[in-house]
Design a binder for these strands. Structure first.
Length: 212
DNA sequence: CCGTTAGTCCGTATTACATCA
DNA sequence: AGTGATGTAATACGGACTAAC
């Protein structure tokens, strides 16, 4: 059976992360998944069916819950998994099988590794977003503080000398999120920092000056 | 055509173990 | 040696999707 579900795009945020290419393969299906399988019983290149057989053996043992032991992947295994992940964030059954064979792991282990890896990616992205929003908040606070100050100054000017002085145009601050350089622009221009970062993170749209 | 069911994969939360300071 | 923190492999569960009936 094929499963064309392809919704890992929910992970697709606009922050560019190294090794996060978000190009899931579409074709899914065909693997038995549910059911607790203690796959730590040595990483032999077994099939899913063999996993199930092992599970049966385990559950037949003494009836009691078998303590699960945890496998640590070798550096080579991790490296190869990471390389595969860079190419694809999801695996179709054939890829999974091939990779498992190559790594001397069970397909289920490869599948779990990819699931956890996707979760870690997402967590990392969320942390980055959080960090960015904090900085955003900080810069807006600072911007607000300066504008308040400017308002105060303008008010003071208004009640001060009646004529002969041209007040400066009100300005606002713009911070480039990439280089974190603050520039001043007049309010007649559209200030990018006043645009909420709701949909797209402005990492991807730094001002042209950033590249100068 | 529509509803139901079974099978599959995925995301998410959690658990349990290994390792390190 | 004991312990708490951290990283991560593995499990549990529910949702989404598809094919078959």
């Amino acid at each position: 059976m094929e499963n064309f579900r392809n919704n890992s795009s929910c992970l697709e945020l606009s922050i560019a992360m190294p090794g996060f290419s978000s190009s899931p393969s579409g074709e899914m299906g065909g693997m038995a998944v549910k059911g607790g399988v203690d796959i730590n019983q040595v990483a032999s290149s077994g099939t899913e069916e063999e996993c199930m057989e092992e599970e049966d053996e385990i559950s037949r043992n003494d009836g009691g819950p078998t303590p699960r032991k945890k496998l640590r992947l070798t550096k080579d295994q991790s490296r190869l998994l990471e390389e595969s992940f860079r190419l694809n964030h999801t695996l179709n059954p054939k890829q999974k099988e091939a990779l498992a064979q190559q790594l001397n792991l069970k397909p289920r282990q490869v599948e779990v590794w990819f699931q956890n890896r996707r979760a870690r990616s997402k967590l990392k992205q969320t942390e980055m977003e959080c960090e960015y929003l904090k900085r955003w908040f900080g810069s807006l606070t600072e911007q607000n503080r300066k504008l308040q100050k400017e308002v105060e100054e303008l008010r003071a000017m208004k009640v001060g000398p009646p004529h002969g002085r041209h007040p400066l145009p009100p300005s606002t601050l713009t911070m480039c999120p990439r280089c974190e350089r603050v520039t001043t622009t007049t309010l007649l221009e559209k200030s990018p920092t006043t645009t909420p970062p709701a949909t797209k993170m402005p990492f991807l749209q730094p001002p042209a000056s950033c590249y100068n």
